[in-house]
Design a protein around this nucleic acid. Structure first.
Length: 841
DNA sequence: GAGTTTGAAACT
DNA sequence: CAGTTTCAAACTC
C-alpha cells in the first residue's frame, strides 16, 4: 500500500487497484455468503427434519457436496490469492476464523450434535438480537468474545496459523484501544449476513450483561479473563443438556475452572454449535424469545436486566408452567427431555447473564458498582440457581405436608412437588456438597435461597398473575447481594444475611400478595416451597437453627424429636437411632404427624407467639423486650427458675406469662409477674439492651402479629395455621421448634411468625403506653381493633405462629423493613416451615 | 464424652 | 384433668 504506485494512485479517486481490491473483497464476501447460506439452509433443513440429517440433507451431506463446497471455499479463502486480498481488504483474518470453524465442523462434527441443545440456541438467539441493536455496547463484549473465539480455535490444529494471526490482531486492536469488533463489524455493511454469523459466535462468549459500562471497562483491561468467563457459560449449557444438572457445576467450579473445562471439552464443537445455532435462530421461532429481544433492545442496559426478567417471567406465566418444568428438570430427567426450547433458552440466558455479571463483579472488585446490573444478576442468579436451591431445600426441609401433597400430585402433570421430593433423594449427594459450603461462606446459602425461591416463584407465576411473579423476583433481588458476596469477599456478611432475610421474608409474602388462596395443590405446593426456601435461608444463616436431634427411642416420630417437631426430616448431622423421620418413611411420618395433630392441633405450631398482647403483664418494658412475645402454652419450670434453656420461654427468648406455671420464675426476658422486671436493674438493662437490638423490628413484628392475630384465635384449634388461605391445618406449621439464640428469636421470628394475642389474660393498663407506641410505629388499620381485643381480657386471641421460634437471625432486623408490612401477613402463611439442612438418606 | 438434670411430651 | 412415665435436650463435669 505504501508503494510509490499506490502513492501516485492516491490522487485518483478510485484506482484500479482499489477497484480490484474491493472487488476481491466483495468476491470473498460473496463466497462467504454463499457458504453460510448453504450452511443456513442445511441447518434449516435439519431443523425442519427434526434435527436429524435426513433425506435430502443427509444425502447432501453424505454426498460430499457440502464437503466439496467447504473445501472449495476453504481453498479459496486459504489460497495465497485470497490471503493477499484479505490483507488488502478491511476484513481481517479474524473473520476467517468462523469460516474455518465451520469448515471443520462440516467435515468432522456431527450435525445432530449441533442442534441437540436448544438451550444454546436460545441462548445465542437472545444474544444475537441484543447485539444487533447494541452495536456500541457490543464493543465491550466484543473483546471478550473475540478472546473467546480465539480460545475456541485453540482446539483446532488447522487454524493454528490463523489463530496466531488473529491473536496478534486482537492484541493490536486492544493496544490501540480499538475493539476487534469494529474490524469485523465494519465489513458487515457489505454482507451483513455473513458477518452476522461470526458475530453471533462471538456473542456466545459475550454476556448480555456485558452491555453495561462496567463490563466494557473490565473487558478492556482483562480481555483474557473475560473471555474465560464468557466461555464458562457454554459449559453450563452443555452440562445442562447432558446431565440435566448444570447447577452443581456452576457452583462447585469456579468460573476459571469451567472455563478450562470448556476449552478442553471442545472448543471446536462449541464454535460449531454456536454457528449452527445462530443459524437456527431463524427457524426457531420463539415468541417469547423474540419478545424478549425486542424488549431488551428498547431498554437501557441497566433497566434491561430487570425488564428482561420480568418479561421472562411474565412470559412464563403466559406460557403456562414452563419455568416450573425447567426447574424440575433438574431433578427429573424425564422432564428435562420434555423441556421446551423457550425454557431452555431462558435458563441459558440467565446463566449467561449471571456468569458474566458475576465475572464483572469479580473483575471490578466492586459488586455494587453497577447497581442495575447487579440487581439483574441477582435476579437472574436466583433463577439460575433455582435447581440447586431445590436440592438444598429438599435436603431436609421437606415438610411432611409437602410429602402429602406430593402424593396427591403424583399422578399429575404438575410434578413440581413430587419432583422436588424425589430429587431429594437423588440429589442427596449434591446437597451434601453444598452443605460444606455453608459454614465457609454465605455463598451456599445464598444460592440455595435464591434457587428455591425462584422455583416457587416460577410455580406461582405459572399459575397466577404476573404481578405476583414480579414481586417475587424483585424481592429476590436481595439475593443477588449474597451472590455477589460469593464472588467478592468484600461484601460483608451482614449484607448478605440481610438480603437473605429480607428475601425470605418477602418471599413469604409472595403468596399472600397474590392474595390467591393456596388451597389448591399446585399453589399450595408453591407456597410451601417458598416457606421451605425461607427456612433454608434461615438455617443457612445460623447453623444453630439447624435441627439435629439425638433421639434414641422415639424414632424421631414424636415431638421429643426436634426435627420432627420442626417439620423437617432428620439429616446426617442427627445422631438419632432407628430414625423414621426420613423421606423414605414419609408415610409413617405423615401418619404420625396427623395423629399428633389430631390430638393437639397446635402441636406443630410455634411455641412462642410474638404478641404485643403479652405486654400487659409485664409492664412498659415488656413492650420493648422480647417479652412482647409469649410462649404458647407457658412453661412449667420448677427448678430452673426459667433461667435456663430447659425453660421453653427462656429458650424462646420470651418472658414468662400468666400462662406459665413456673415456680420461682426469674426469666430475664420477663417474669411471670411483671413486677419482677422492675426489681432488678441488671435485668432491665439486659432486657433493654436486647430490646434495643430489636427495637427497630418490633414495630413491624407487632404489626404483623396484630394483623395475624385478627385472623387467629387461639381459642380455636386452627389458629396455628395461618391459614387464611384455607390451607389444611396439616400443612401449616411446620414448625417449630427452632431454637435459635435469643437474639435471633426475638428478631427473626418476627417475619415468620404467626402471632396472636395471648390467652385470655387480663390486659393491664400498663400496657397502654405500649399500645400507643405500637400505633405510632405501625399504623395499621388493624391495629386498633387488635389492641382493643387485647385490652379485653379473655379475648382469647392467641397467637400461633408456626414458626415463631424459628426466627430469623438477628441480622434480620435490617432485612425486615417496614416496606414489607403488607407482605407480612402473607409471609406468615407461607412460612410454615423451617430451614433444613441436607436431606439424609 | 459420659452422666446428670430438667421439663416437655406422652401416657394412664 | 391430674398424675406418672418417657424422652431428649440442656447442662455439668
Amino acid at each position: 500500500m505504501d508503494t510509490p504506485e499506490k502513492a501516485t494512485q492516491i490522487a485518483t479517486p478510485l484506482s484500479k487497484f482499489e477497484i480490484f481490491n474491493s472487488t476481491s473483497v466483495l468476491f470473498g464476501h460473496l463466497l462467504h455468503s454463499a457458504f453460510w447460506v448453504l450452511v443456513v439452509l442445511r441447518s434449516m433443513l435439519v431443523v425442519v427434519t427434526e434435527q436429524k440429517p435426513k433425506n435430502f440433507i443427509e444425502s447432501f451431506y453424505k454426498g460430499g457436496n457440502c464437503l466439496m463446497f467447504s473445501l472449495f471455499t476453504y481453498c479459496l479463502l486459504d489460497s495465497p490469492v485470497f490471503n493477499y486480498i484479505n490483507s488488502l481488504s478491511p476484513i481481517k483474518p479474524v473473520k476467517s476464523i468462523p469460516i474455518t470453524q465451520t469448515y471443520n465442523s462440516l467435515n468432522f462434527s456431527s450435525l445432530p450434535s449441533i442442534f441437540t441443545s436448544p438451550h444454546v440456541i436460545a441462548h445465542r438467539e437472545t444474544r444475537f438480537l441484543r447485539r444487533n441493536n447494541f452495536s456500541d455496547p457490543s464493543k465491550a463484549g466484543s473483546s471478550s468474545e473475540n478472546g473467546n473465539k480465539v480460545c475456541t480455535d485453540d482446539g483446532v490444529a488447522m487454524d493454528a496459523s490463523q489463530l496466531y494471526d488473529n491473536s496478534t490482531q486482537l492484541q493490536e486492536n486492544f493496544d490501540n484501544g480499538v475493539s476487534i469488533e469494529e474490524d469485523s463489524v465494519e465489513p458487515s455493511s457489505d454482507s451483513k449476513f455473513v458477518i452476522e454469523l461470526p458475530r453471533a459466535l462471538k456473542y456466545d462468549c459475550g454476556s448480555p450483561g456485558c452491555n453495561s459500562t462496567p463490563c466494557s471497562v473490565i473487558e478492556a483491561n482483562c480481555v483474557s479473563e473475560q473471555a474465560g468467563t464468557s466461555a464458562s457459560v457454554v459449559p453450563f449449557v452443555e452440562k445442562d443438556s447432558e446431565n440435566g444438572s448444570f447447577e452443581d457445576e456452576v457452583h462447585l467450579q469456579g468460573a476459571s475452572q469451567i472455563e478450562q473445562k470448556k476449552e478442553e471439552v471442545g472448543c471446536d464443537w462449541e464454535s460449531l454449535i454456536s454457528d449452527a445455532q445462530d443459524l437456527l435462530i431463524f427457524n426457531y421461532h420463539n415468541e417469547s424469545e423474540a419478545f424478549k429481544g425486542l424488549i431488551q433492545k428498547s431498554m437501557d442496559p441497566g433497566e434491561r436486566f430487570c425488564t428482561s426478567l420480568v418479561t421472562r417471567f411474565s412470559q412464563n406465566d403466559l406460557s403456562g408452567e414452563p419455568k416450573l418444568q425447567m426447574v424440575d428438570s433438574v431433578g427429573c430427567s424425564q422432564q428435562h427431555e420434555m423441556m421446551e426450547t423457550s425454557e431452555l433458552k431462558e435458563i441459558n440466558e440467565i446463566e449467561d447473564n449471571l456468569a458474566n455479571d458475576d465475572l464483572n463483579n469479580c473483575l471490578t472488585g466492586n459488586p455494587s458498582e453497577n447497581v442495575n446490573d447487579e440487581v439483574g444478576v441477582c435476579v437472574q442468579d436466583a433463577c439460575k440457581r433455582v435447581p440447586t436451591l431445590h436440592r438444598g431445600m429438599l435436603r431436609r426441609c421437606l415438610d411432611f405436608e409437602r410429602v402429602a401433597r406430593r402424593k396427591n400430585l403424583n399422578d399429575g402433570s404438575n410434578c413440581s412437588s413430587s419432583i422436588i421430593l424425589q430429587s431429594n433423594e437423588e440429589i442427596a449427594s449434591e446437597d451434601n456438597q453444598l452443605m460444606p459450603l455453608r459454614p465457609t461462606s454465605d455463598s451456599p446459602r445464598c444460592i440455595l435461597p435464591g434457587i428455591g425461591l425462584h422455583l416457587n416463584a416460577l410455580t406461582l407465576a405459572s399459575q397466577d398473575n404476573k404481578n405476583f411473579k414480579l414481586e417475587i423476583f424483585s424481592r429476590q433481588l436481595s439475593l443477588p447481594t449474597s451472590t455477589a458476596s460469593i464472588h467478592s469477599p468484600e461484601s460483608g456478611q451482614e449484607p448478605v444475611q440481610e438480603s437473605l432475610t429480607s428475601a425470605a421474608a418477602e418471599r413469604d409474602m409472595v403468596p399472600v400478595d397474590d392474595g390467591v388462596p393456596l388451597a389448591e395443590d399446585a399453589s399450595q405446593t408453591s407456597a410451601y416451597l417458598v416457606g421451605e426456601e425461607r427456612r433454608m435461608e434461615l438455617a443457612g444463616e445460623s447453623e444453630s437453627a439447624c435441627k439435629r436431634c439425638n433421639c434414641k427411642k422415639s424414632k424421631c416420630l414424636k415431638l421429643y424429636c426436634e426435627c420432627f417437631a420442626a417439620g423437617v426430616y432428620c439429616i446426617e448431622p442427627c445422631s438419632c437411632q432407628d430414625c423414621f423421620n426420613k423421606p423414605i418413611h414419609e408415610d409413617t411420618v405423615l401418619a404420625t404427624r396427623k395423629q399428633i395433630e389430631s390430638r393437639n392441633p397446635l402441636a406443630f405450631a410455634p411455641k412462642v407467639i410474638r404478641n404485643s398482647d403479652s405486654v400487659p403483664e409485664q409492664g412498659d418494658e415488656s413492650s420493648k423486650t422480647p417479652a412482647s412475645a409469649r410462649h404458647k402454652r407457658g412453661c412449667n419450670c420448677k427448678k430452673s427458675s426459667c433461667l435456663k434453656k430447659y425453660c421453653e420461654c427462656y429458650q424462646g427468648g420470651v418472658g414468662c406469662s400468666i400462662n406459665c406455671r413456673c415456680e420461682g420464675c426469674k426469666n430475664t426476658f420477663g417474669r411471670k409477674d411483671g413486677s419482677a422486671i422492675i426489681e432488678t436493674d441488671a435485668e432491665q438493662e439486659e432486657e433493654e439492651s436486647e430490646t434495643c437490638e430489636k427495637s427497630g423490628v418490633d414495630p413491624i413484628l407487632q404489626r404483623t402479629e396484630i394483623s395475624n392475630n385478627e385472623e387467629q384465635n387461639q381459642g380455636s384449634a386452627h389458629p396455628t395455621t395461618p391459614l387464611q388461605f384455607s390451607r389444611p391445618l396439616v400443612q401449616l406449621p411446620f414448625s417449630s421448634k427452632f431454637k435459635p439464640p435469643r437474639s435471633l428469636l426475638s428478631i427473626g421470628s418476627s417475619t415468620a411468625f404467626y402471632t396472636g394475642l395471648n390467652y385470655g389474660k387480663p390486659s393491664i393498663l400498663r400496657s397502654q403506653p405500649k399500645f400507643e407506641k405500637r400505633l405510632q410505629t405501625a399504623p395499621d388499620e388493624e391495629m386498633p381493633e387488635i389492641l382493643q381485643g387485647n385490652s379485653s381480657p379473655g379475648s382469647g386471641v392467641k397467637t400461633v405462629s408456626p414458626n415463631s421460634k424459628r426466627v430469623s437471625p438477628p441480622n434480620n432486623v435490617l432485612g425486615s423493613s417496614p416496606s414489607r408490612r403488607s407482605g407480612r401477613k402473607l409471609i406468615l402463611q407461607s412460612i410454615p416451615s423451617f430451614p433444613s439442612l441436607t436431606p439424609q438418606h
